[in-house]
């Protein structure tokens, strides 16, 4: 049997509500009083998810709620509400963000139902998704990719390394319109961010 028919016979594997409980990373809550030695200074007066690498060093003073992390969307654009093309750019990641981003196209999440697609060139992209620390020779690559993108365009910082550097390096020197915390962010968290960035509402 050919794969097209086989695909149809498999039925729908896509999940209406793609959020499901994952302990790490998820929103943390303080469970006990006490001083925490956080390797990325994510815990001060309050917990800052964009600095957190979810290394569990703060347990048991902080505990995971299992709730999907909320991305910070500083700018969204409804121009992209029907079709939103992403160009992923690995600035110097460990590979986990790359994998999680790829998984939003898996049948469980199916990003295409929300009008979200990957493109192979920044010239066709609506958003640049930057992952990882700033690698040795990546500054110029990021700048050139951004410059050739048509306007309007968004910059999405995916994962703690790209947002604040984490424990393995420094972040790329570029301002993010959308910030997706996590080490790495879960596919549910990434999809939430992308839907909001294109002016949509999370199902």
């Amino acid at each position: 049997m050919n794969w097209f028919l086989k695909g149809i016979r498999m039925g729908v594997r896509t999940e209406k509500d793609y959020h499901h409980e994952t302990k790490w990373p998820s929103r943390l809550k303080r469970a006990q009083e006490g001083e925490v030695k956080c390797p990325t200074d994510a815990i001060g007066e309050e917990w800052r998810p964009e600095r957190c690498i979810f290394c569990r060093a703060c347990e048991p003073l902080f505990s995971p709620t299992g709730e999907t992390l909320t991305p910070k969307v500083e700018r969204s654009d409804r121009t992209f509400r029907r079709s939103f093309y992403l160009y992923p750019l690995d600035a110097g990641s460990c590979g986990a963000c790359n994998l999680e981003l790829r998984l939003i196209s898996s049948p469980q999440y199916d990003m295409t139902r929300f009008g979200i697609f990957f493109t192979n060139t920044p010239k066709h992209a609506d958003a640049l998704v930057i992952m990882g620390n700033l690698g040795k020779r990546m500054e110029e690559v990021i700048r050139r990719a951004y410059d050739v993108m048509p306007s309007p365009k968004l910059v999405i910082l995916l994962g703690t390394c790209a947002i604040s550097g984490g424990v393995t390096g420094i972040p790329p020197d570029i301002r993010g319109d959308v910030i997706i915390p996590g080490c790495p962010p879960t596919p549910a968290s990434i999809l939430d961010a992308l839907i909001r960035a294109k002016g949509g509402e999370i199902p």
């Binding site: 499901h20 790829r102 998984l103 898996s106 469980q108």
Partner: peptide, 18 residues
């Protein structure tokens, strides 16, 4: 990809992190 995601969820259930 669906099966990769299934393994990731199994790893998360087993060890807390995907």
């Amino acid at each position: 990809l669906q099966q990769v995601e299934e393994v990731n969820r199994t790893i998360a259930r087993s060890c807390g992190h995907r």
